[in-house]
Each structure stands twice: as C-alpha cells, then as structure tokens.
Design a protein around this nucleic acid. Sequence first.
DNA 1: ATAAATGGGTCTAAAAAAGTCCCATCTGGC
DNA 2: GCCAGATGGGACTTTTTTAGACCCATTTAT
Lengths: 356, 356
Amino acid sequence: MLMIMGFEKDSLNLIVPELAELLVKRYQLLRKIYYSAPIGRRPLASYFNLGEKILRKEVDLLREQGLLIVDQRGISLTPSGENLVTDITPYLKSLLGLTLLEERLLRILKVKRVLVIPGNLENDEVVLLEMGRAAAKILRELLEPDMILAVSGGTSCAAVADMLSEGPAPHGIEVVPARGGLGEVVDYQANNIAARVARKLRARYRLLHLPDSLGEEALQIVMKDEKVQRILGMINSAKVLLHGIGIADEMARCRNATPEEIKRLVHEGAVGEVFGLFYNAGGEIVGSIPGLGLYLDNLNKHARHVIVVAGGRKKAEAIIAIVGNHPRDLLVLDEGAARKIAEIAGDNGGDKAFDE
Amino acid sequence: MLMIMGFEKDSLNLIVPELAELLVKRYQLLRKIYYSAPIGRRPLASYFNLGEKILRKEVDLLREQGLLIVDQRGISLTPSGENLVTDITPYLKSLLGLTLLEERLLRILKVKRVLVIPGNLENDEVVLLEMGRAAAKILRELLEPDMILAVSGGTSCAAVADMLSEGPAPHGIEVVPARGGLGEVVDYQANNIAARVARKLRARYRLLHLPDSLGEEALQIVMKDEKVQRILGMINSAKVLLHGIGIADEMARCRNATPEEIKRLVHEGAVGEVFGLFYNAGGEIVGSIPGLGLYLDNLNKHARHVIVVAGGRKKAEAIIAIVGNHPRDLLVLDEGAARKIAEIAGDNGGDKAFDE
DNA sequence: ATAAATGGGTCTAAAAAAGTCCCATCTGGC
DNA sequence: GCCAGATGGGACTTTTTTAGACCCATTTAT
C-alpha cells in the first residue's frame, strides 16, 4: 500500500501538533533503551533529566503497547520494540524535515551521500552510537578484498569501531591508523581504533608509533625507519578512509603545540582538523602537527571511498571547511551539526528541532 | 517524496497511540465546521456532547494552527483548514483501516467500487452530507449527453441532491423519479429529489404522481395513463440509477401496508427495500409496494451505472442482501455500516472504530 | 431598535499529573 | 552462598492542569 507522504507530514503536524513532540520523546527513549538495556528507571530518568514519575508514565505506556518489557533487571526492548525503533526512523526523519535537510546538505557540501541522525550528540550521547552504527554498516558494504582501510582517531571513529558488526570481511584487508599516537585517551587513538576495527572484521592491522611528544629531529629519524616507512606508504595508498573532524583550537590545545604555533593557527583562521592537518574556512591547509608535515596531503587522490563521521553543533564550521571544499563520499552527522550547517549556509528549513 | 505507508500506520499507532483519537476528534470538528460555518461555540459543544471549555480548548488549538478563524459571527474554516480537511481524509482512512475495509467490502459484495466515509451516520449527521458529496462528485463524472438518470427517495439520495455542485451537465439529460410519491416528508420523496438534482444539473426532469394511498384498482387505471406510461418507460430505460436502501420493516410500516402484508413480508424474511421492492437476505424479491408489481425488475439490465448510497449500522443487513446479490457499480456508505457488514461477514479487521 | 447569539473572561471545583519517599525483591559480584 | 546495591512497584502529598458554570460586552440578524 503506497501513499504520497510529503503533504501529510505538514498536514499531520497542523492538525496534531503534539505528534512530533510525543514521537520524538518516545523515540529517544526507545533508542536509549536499545543501547543500554537492561537499564533501570532511575538512571533513565536522570539521563533525560526527567522526573521519575513522568518517565514511569511513558514507560508504562510503551510497555502496554508491547514495545518494551520491564522486569527486575530493568527495562529492555521487546522484539517488536526493536523493529519499531528502526522502522520508524525514516518516518521520523521525514516528519522532522531531516530528509529535506539531507538534500540541502548535498547541495551545500561536496559530498555524494549524507546521513543525518536524529538528535544532538551534545545532549544525547546515544546519537554518537547511532552515527557509528550507520557509518559502520555502510563501511562494511564498501569493503573489497585486499583493500587498505585507514582510520583516524577521535570519539566518532571510536563509535564506528564499537558499532561495527562482528564477522569476517573480504580477504586481505588491512587496517592502518592514519596517524600516530596522540596525547589522547587510549580509546580514541587511531592505533587503538584501527586495532578494534580490524578485530571486528577479522582483518590484519598495523600500528604506527609516532608520539606527538617527540622532538622534530627525533621524529625525522624515526620516520626514516623502514617499518614506519612501509606503514606510511600503506596509509597513503589506502583505498578507504574513515575519519572524524576535529575542531582546530581544541585539537591544537589538546596536542602539545607551542603557544606561538597556536597563535599562528588562530591567525591563519584554522577551524578544522583532519589527520593532524589544520584547515581554514576556505579549506586550505594552514598548519599541521609538528614534524609530520604534509605527508598526507595526497591521501584523497588514492582513496576510493572517504567516509566522514562528525557530530555536534560546534563542529559545523569545521565540517563546512573540510567537507565543503574537499570531495567526500559519505558524511554521517547528527541533526545538531546538520541544522547548524544549514543555518550558516543561510538555508535553514525552519523546521522544529528534534532536541530540546 | 514517496514513502511506504502501510507499516507506518501500525508503527505510529504503536508508539503514539493517542494519535488516532486526537486526529479523529479534530477531523470531526473541522468537518462539522466545514458544513455548518459559521457556527457558535455552544452549538458545536452540544453537537459533540462536549463541555464548553473542552471544546474551546480544541478550537483555540486549531485556531493557533491557522486552520480556523473565530469572529463575532462564529467559527469558520480558513482556506488552509478547508484544504486540510480534504487532504487528510485519505490518510485518516488509512490510519483507521478504512482503506483495507473498502478492499474487504469489494470481496464481500458484488460491487465495482466502494467508498467508506469515516464516521457513523447515526451519531454524526455530517457523515450523511459527506456521503452525499462523495456520491454526487462521482455521479457528475458519469454523466453523458442524453442520459436518463433515475433517482429514488430517502435521506441518502436527498443528501446527494443537496451536495451536488451547481452547474450545467451534458445536454439532453433527463432526471426521473424511480418511484411515485411516498407517504414521507416531501424533502425525501423521489419526485422532489429528482427535481432538485435536475435543477443543480440544469437538466429537465419528469414527475411521477403515484401516491401509495391509491387503491389497487385506481392505481391500475392511473398507470394506463399515457403520460404515466411514458415516464415509466423512461425509468426502465434509465442509463444511470441512483438509489438508497431501505430497511424492510421500517419501510413497510412507513408506507401504509396492511398488517397481513407486513406479516407476510416478515415471514418471507424481507430485510431490504429498493424502489418499492422488498428483498430477503438471499437477494430475492419477496414483495413490493401494493399495485406496482415488479415493473422495475429489469431495471438493472438497461442501466449502465448503478450507484448506491446508504449508511448506518442498522442498514448493514439490507445492504448485504441487495448489494451482496445484485451487481452495483458504486457503493457509498459510512464507516458504521461498513464495519457492521464486515462483522456479519466474519471478516472484521479488528481496527478501532472512528466513532465513539 | 431589539432580542438573541457570539466569543471572551473569570472564578471555582475537580481531577490528573508529578514529585518524593519507602519497600520487598532480585541481581550480580565476590 | 552471601551481601551490597540496584531493581520496579506502591503510596502519599503537593502542585499543576483541566474542566465546569457563569457573566458580560459586543455584534449581528431580524
């Protein structure tokens, strides 16, 4: 049974304006439970900053609908609840105007495909997992035998690694980190993520040990090492690239850059960072992690598929700078970043936001 | 923008179960205002048996949505409100399962096309007008030059006449009453309806003066009259038939049938009546208005289009008896009758009912 | 001109919602 | 096999929302 949807989105919102709010609230709830089941009533309430009773009412309603079960261990989704949370997603996206937003971003940015995940990563950490799941699913579909897959660090790529389904991939795939060890939490380092992705894919992986703390000369020496050279070569010939996007000043501060280096980056208008390279709003490289130089500059030329995962309103400028000026194949972002990008581009849809 | 609807109907109902109730309530409200504008707050409240405040809340909400305007004369629909009430109808029908119900009735009955109007005629008189409007619209599309259109009496056909749009129809059309004057209110007599339909179509019409109160012999004499004979001939050669359906015992009691005649009809199992002919559940003619005999028996053979309009749960059996055994081209009924028919046929969808 | 109907405002009563606690029970770690 | 901690369910109170019943100034149709 097929029906034209477009007009009903608006019509339904007109005649039942509370629909969007109700739908979004319960969708968020189901989605959170999906990722955290079994979870107690109180942790759930505090997660959404809701009163205990108000959440209980929702849970009772959804339980009566057969969407979730609640037992002594906590609240979990029933099978039909799990089906629903995926089934309803395209409708929700249409209702919230995210489908239109995706089309808008296709025009604004230089990207072949866009996926906007409902919600705001800054308010709802489940959104990050959803982004990871979406990117991971597409990543798997891209894999072919003997491909080299280069991954960057950061929370976004970590989420992709976490949500990647376990199971064998085509033969001969190798996963490499696109950068050496950074001064971050180990879970978000490129090395670690490469290893996790490889484990999920049952593929090989290489590690690149280039701590940022190394001095310029030491770095030059290490980079002449045969092993390091081979991995650098692999990175540059990677067929699939998966990377997040950093906010320039955050990254510069996080990595031990000198104060004058930071000052210079600011002066040059750096807004975004990828693989240790800093970009200004025009998409030009205006700096890099000390010592590494621009050895990654020609990554895009060899890569066949470039996947970007990034979320949060504050990353909008960085996304525009990078994805707006350099062609990418897939961009997975959250609603927060997507709306902000559309706002900046002066092309916002005026739709109501999903998040509070 | 196209989307698959089927599953969303159920999915939306699952995750936002209050949607159906809200939608139906406001749809009913808009529909009533559409037909009664401008109408005051108090008459509206009493029409729906609602408290004054509770209705005011709904009206305020719909006003804020820009669907209706309220001024000193009362409440009316805005243009977008009028558009909405028609735009949302197919969605509402799908949500309530009426689209499925229509398909089910196609299988149960011998009819080419079915239209189920949301609501129950017995609780909401606006439903009758909606039925009339739907039938009238299709009737107009069927008209061709020099056609003879025969109409029956009753409230349903009267509604069709009322809702028929005013404007010229193809040339040479003639409207005739399918039966003589009955002992009913003048507005519901076939003669009167034929005249009103003709006026709307700017077509010619003939009247047939055969009061039921006439005795058997007098009737026989009148029927030999040349004029009467010609009209009877026209009726029998009508290309388009529009008729309602009567409930057997109501009709028998209403028309002055003798007690023994009523007894005989009951004994024969008469359940439905059309054009003065009584049908049992098997669709066989078991009686007729005295004197007229079966002169209309072969109506169907000449008619090219037969339209039936009938509503109300209590007419379900009659509809089954007649439309279930004699081929019709179009059946316009209300949700009440449609659901009852499906129940009787043991094939009910189990959907929630539109009406309270 | 006038009488009836209109929407809007207000006061009050009732009901529903939400916050806050407690408790029996079960789970999971050890 | 035990114990600490978390689980959902229930009960009570406070708050908020809702709904009912008026009255009133204005306007409209007669």
